[in-house]
Design a binder for these strands. Structure first.
Lengths: 192, 192
DNA sequence: TTTCTTATAGAACGATTGTTCTTATTGTTA
DNA sequence: TAACAATAAGAACAATCGTTCTATAAGAAA
C-alpha cells in the first residue's frame, strides 16, 4: 500500500537517528498510529516485502531493501543522480560496503607510490582482512623482518614473491622470515 | 578491561550479521556468559566507554565508536600492526572518514577508465559533495545535457573545460547547457 | 599470604514486549 | 449503491525484557 512507504520512511528516519528500530509501542508514536496491532500488521507487511526481518530472538531488524535507495540506475537513466537525503544510513552503508568482517578488519595508511599502477596512491587507506586466506594475485600486507609493506602476491620460481605495481620498484623475494598479515579487501581515499 | 574487547568483537560480528544488537538473554549465549547481570554490567561498561548507547525507549544501540576500526600507525614500531592491541591503538570509522556532510553527499559508481591516471577505476564508488564550491583542478561530477560524467575541472582559454585523466580521451569543452553536480571528496573501492 | 576491587552467577521483580483476538473504519470494486 | 478487502483501534495475554539484589569467583595490589 502507498501509505506503507510513508511509514517505512519514518522508520528509516528513526533508524538513521538511533541505529535501532523502536519497539511497537514507540512505533505507534513515531508512525502516528494508535494501536500496536496496527503496527504489528504493518511490520508483517514490511517483512513480506523484504524491508525488515526478524532475528532469531524475534527482534525486528532492517534487511537489505530497507537501505535501498534510488541511486545508480536511476542516475544513468534520468540523466541526473538522485540526491541522497537519508544520509546516515547511507554512510552506514559505506561501512557495510567496505567492511565484511569488522573483527578481522584493519585499516592501514598507504605510504609511497609502489602500487601506483594498481590505482593505489600514497595516503590512501587500505582495508585489510587479517583472516582471509591468500592466493597468488592478491594484494596483501606483508611483514618482512618487521617491515610492513603492501604488494601483489605472486609465485616466482615456485616461491612466493611480492610484486610492486610500479616498474621503478624491484620484485621482492623475501629471504628473511616473513608472513602475510592480511589481504586487501578495500580501499578508500579522501580528496580535499 | 581486556576481555571487554573480545565481547565487543562478538557483538560487532552479531551486528554485522543481523543489523541489531541482541537481547540480554541472547547475549549470554553469544558472549558465553551465564547470567544476564553479567551482560548488564558489560553493557554499562560499554556505554561508559562510548561503544553503545541507549535509545529513548531503553533499547541498546551501537554508537560511533562501535564502528571504529583499528588503524595501524604509519610508522609501525613493533613492525607489526597488531589489531587486538589492548591499549587503545588509533582507530577510525570509515563512514565518518569518507563522508563529512551526509546531507550533501552522493554516491556515484564510476564507469569507464577515463580517469585511470588519477587512480580512479571502473567500478569504484565516488563520494560527491553537492554543496561544495568548485575550482579549477577539482575532480567533479558534471551534468552535460543530461549526461553525467566524472572529470577534472580545468580552465581552457578562459572557459571551464572537463579533462579526462587518460590520454585516450579528449578534453571536453561543453557547449550545451551544463553544470557541476558536485565535487569529488572521496573514493572507495572493493577488492574480492 | 591478606586485602581490595572487579567480574560473574543466580534468583526474583515489575515493566514492557509482541501477539492475538474482536470490532470499527476506510478504501476499492462491481 | 452494496459488497468486499484492507487497515486501524482497543483490550487482554503470556512471554520476555532489563533491572536489581546478594553471593561467589577471579585478579590485582600490598
Amino acid at each position: 500500500m502507498k501509505k506503507d512507504f510513508i511509514y517505512l520512511a519514518k522508520l528509516q528516519d528513526y533508524y538513521r537517528d538511533h541505529r535501532v528500530l523502536p519497539s511497537y509501542r514507540t512505533m505507534t508514536e513515531v508512525l502516528g498510529l494508535a494501536s500496536k496491532s496496527a503496527v504489528h500488521a504493518l511490520i508483517a507487511r514490511l517483512i513480506d516485502e523484504g524491508f525488515v526481518s526478524k532475528t532469531p530472538d524475534r527482534r525486528i531488524a532492517p534487511s537489505d531493501r530497507f537501505f535501498e535507495r534510488p541511486l545508480a540506475q536511476s542516475a544513468v537513466r534520468a540523466g541526473m543522480p538522485s540526491f541522497v537525503e537519508d544520509s546516515v544510513s547511507d554512510s552506514m552503508a559505506v561501512d557495510h560496503y567496505l567492511i565484511d568482517n569488522p573483527t578481522h578488519s584493519l585499516l592501514v595508511p598507504v605510504q609511497g607510490d609502489s602500487m601506483i599502477n594498481a590505482g593505489i596512491h600514497d595516503g590512501d587507506i587500505a582495508i585489510i582482512d587479517t583472516m582471509l586466506s591468500y592466493k597468488a594475485g592478491d594484494i596483501v600486507i606483508a611483514d618482512i623482518a618487521g617491515e610492513v609493506t603492501l604488494k601483489t602476491l605472486v609465485r616466482d620460481e615456485g616461491l612466493w614473491a611480492l610484486k610492486p605495481e610500479n616498474p621503478d620498484y624491484p620484485l621482492i623475494q623475501p629471504k628473511d622470515e616473513w608472513r602475510v598479515v592480511g589481504v586487501l579487501v578495500g580501499l578508500m581515499r579522501k580528496y580535499r
